[in-house]
């Protein structure tokens, strides 16, 4: 799976859990929390959706690795391989 695919997977999940957010112009290097109204409960939902839709597990200590779109792609890509 390409980086672009993984990036899109994350964006799709975010737009499902926070339907009011505009996800079209996100800066990959800036933390998602700064750009969107996401709190820790929403990050839990991202993790839960990754598991539910893609059988990808993110242990709690790795949540910080989901901070930016770029770090998401780096961290998640091997899990999708």
């Amino acid at each position: 799976m390409t980086s672009a695919n993984v990036r899109q997977i994350v964006i799709d999940i975010i737009s499902d859990i926070a339907p009011d957010e505009d996800v079209t112009n996100l800066d990959d290097k800036v933390s998602l929390r700064e750009q969107l109204d996401l709190d820790s409960m929403d990050f839990l939902d991202i993790v839960m959706e990754l598991r539910k839709r893609h059988k990808v597990e993110v242990p709690q200590e790795d949540y910080p690795k989901l901070a930016t779109l770029e770090s998401c792609v780096v961290y998640l890509s091997p899990k999708f391989a």
Binding site: I17, A18, D20, D37, D39, M41, D42, D45
Partner: peptide, 16 residues
């Protein structure tokens, strides 16, 4: 409608 970061908006998001 559309207000963010409040208890009620969290409730909406979490319960979809």
């Amino acid at each position: 409608k559309g207000e963010k970061g409040k208890p009620f908006s969290k409730l909406l998001k979490q319960l979809r």
